[in-house]
Design a binder for these strands. Structure first.
Length: 573
DNA sequence: ATAGGGTTAG
């Protein structure tokens, strides 16, 4: 015989949290709690707060519950703060926390973890991070592994110093686990992928078992390196541990191989996958886009059997733009909203502006910008500016440059492109003024670096080449290369260099651009951090003919495959 | 009852 017990508040709380994000179920239990007056119990209230935040009720309904509670404990505050974080209301979470702090209410590690998660992606997050780190140190919570890990993530996602992250990590002093190791590797993955791998090896030496999260982050770091060798090594670990059917890891591998130059390898991985999700298709589409293989991208899309999303169309549009397929691009832009119900976002508009501008339809590009339902961002304007440069549209270029400076004052791109436009136009005085303005505002142009891998060693080149131990030999070889290229018709584009220097020095400056140095050192795959300049691009085209080899350069924007004087980008990048 | 790390850049 079944004996009926009156449910306790704990039963209510457990059932409510078991509802997860299921509103229907959650609301019914809530109603029952109201009828039986269990809603006034803290445990029940706390569970309701989280339930609403996870469901479509959202932060407002959770807040109603919170406010109605006659008695709250620490968990109530924490749940509300975590709830705000989940719902993307970081500011409300911070407000509540400061109330807590001012009111002398005790907080704990869960509070801090939620607060640090909130800071990720907030405008003034870095400043808050510093302040909260002090509080965290004072209260001793910095020694708690979860708190420290959340702090590391907040710092790195807000663009704080990686070295600060590393210090926080090290101060955990022997108590680190897989999660905190993953956090620190993630912090390094984008800005110093080599170091990220060094830390990963160190982690393996400590005999800790890597999990899926760890591998995905390590593969992400591999995507930042010069060859696919590292990615493949990591993949062999992945297989050894038995994660071969993990979709996320295969997706990360597709991306890494493509970024390291091997689309073919990406495709192999993609083909071998047992099942694929939207990200898998998107990653493969992006791989084609990066390499300017527009036809392949469209063909793959026609075979796609997962639900396309916004990113799918960003990939397709950028594939069209990189392959110069204007008509196809326009058609895709149409169908994405008409047939797939996806509302174009900033990225889509930026691609479309790029596609139109590249095809020389600059006024159409400008019209599209004017028609955008949201404020165009700096990416959109720089796409327009790029096409103005290509097609000599000085007037519109000025407008775009002004907008760029407004929206992204620390970005040198607007200044540099604008001064290039003036130079090509022979308006050197105006070009110089722009440069001056840039220097006055301390907008630093990112120094151009190139990397090349020879044997097992990565060589880094900076403009001027003075850092490399074999600089004399490289410069001599470069001079020889320049001499022979000039016979082939290479004319250095002096007008691109700064105009405050003598002509012959201008020419020298051009020769020592980092990718030329890298090429002179070893003719192979070159990777660089900023966009390749017109002169280097020309240089590479002719060099590919001279040495009768394919030269591959990955710049910040895409891949350039130079062969027999032709580049895969068709001279638009 | 609440609590740290995962894949797609232009």
């Amino acid at each position: 015989m079944l004996i009926w017990h009156q449910p306790t508040e704990f039963a209510f709380a457990s059932v409510i949290s078991a509802c997860g994000g299921d509103d229907n179920c959650g609301r019914q239990v809530h109603a029952l709690a109201l009828k039986t007056s269990f809603d006034s119990c803290v445990y029940v209230g706390n569970a309701l707060i989280m339930m609403y935040c996870k469901s479509c009720g959202g932060a407002d309904e959770a807040w109603n519950v919170y406010e109605a509670m006659g008695f709250r404990n620490l968990v109530s505050w924490n749940s509300m703060i975590a709830g705000f974080q989940v719902c993307g209301c970081g500011n409300r979470a911070l407000e509540l926390f400061s109330q807590m702090h001012v009111g002398g209410i005790r907080f704990d590690r869960a509070t801090l973890v939620s607060i640090f998660s909130c800071l990720c992606g907030m405008g003034d997050g870095l400043e808050c991070c510093f302040q909260l780190q002090c509080l965290t140190i004072k209260t001793g919570f910095i020694l708690k592994i979860e708190v420290a890990t959340a702090l590391v993530k907040a710092y790195s996602s807000l663009g704080g110093e990686v070295s600060d992250c590393y210090r926080i990590f090290l101060e955990l002093d022997g108590r680190q686990d897989v999660v905190s190791w993953t956090g620190i590797i993630a912090a390094f993955a984008e800005r110093d992928p080599k170091k990220a791998l060094v830390i990963f090896r160190q982690f393996l030496r400590e005999c800790l078992a890597p999990d899926r999260h760890m591998f995905s982050i390590v593969l992400k770091a591999c995507a930042g390196l010069a060859t696919e060798r590292h990615a493949l090594t990591v993949q062999s670990h992945v297989l050894k541990v038995g994660f071969e059917d993990d979709i996320v890891l295969a997706n990360a591998l597709i991306h890494a191989c493509a970024r390291c130059g091997s689309v073919a390898l990406s495709k192999q991985v993609f083909d071998k996958m047992g099942s694929r999700d939207t990200v898998s298709w998107n990653s493969m589409l992006k791989a084609y886009a990066m390499h300017g293989q527009g036809k392949e991208a469209l063909l793959l899309f026609s075979q796609m059997d997962a639900q396309p999303d916004g990113a799918t169309f960003v990939a397709l549009l950028s594939a069209c733009s990189h392959a110069g397929m204007a008509e196809e691009g326009a058609k895709i832009f149409e169908t994405m909203s008409n047939n797939h119900g996806i509302v174009p976002q900033l990225d889509h508009y930026a691609c479309m502006v790029d596609i139109l501008g590249r095809a020389g339809q600059i006024s159409e590009a400008k019209e599209l910008i004017d028609k955008m339902p949201m404020e165009p961002d700096s990416v959109v304007w720089s796409a327009l500016l790029g096409s103005c440069r290509k097609h000599g549209e000085t007037k519109l270029a000025k407008l775009a440059a002004v907008k760029l400076k407004e929206l992204d004052p620390n970005n040198s791109l607007g200044y540099v492109l604008m001064s290039n436009i003036f130079c090509t136009d022979g308006r050197f005085n105006e070009a110089r003024l722009i440069r001056r303005e840039m220097e006055g505002k301390i907008v630093r142009k990112e120094p151009g670096l190139s990397w090349i891998e020879v044997g097992n060693q990565v060589h880094e080149f900076a403009s001027g080449g003075q850092q490399h131990p074999e600089k004399e030999a490289i410069c001599a070889r470069l001079e020889e290369l320049v001499r022979r290229l000039k016979d082939l018709g290479y004319v250095p584009q002096i007008s691109l260099a700064l105009h405050d220097i003598e002509d012959e020095h201008k020419e020298e400056q051009l020769y020592y651009h980092s990718e030329k140095l890298a090429l002179a050192f070893a003719l192979m795959n070159i990777m660089k951090n900023i966009r390749i300049c017109v002169d280097c691009h020309n240089f590479m085209k002719l060099a590919s003919e001279l040495v009768d080899m394919e030269i591959v350069v990955r710049d910040s924007n895409r891949f350039h495959h130079f062969k027999a004087k032709v580049c895969s980008c068709n001279d638009y990048w």
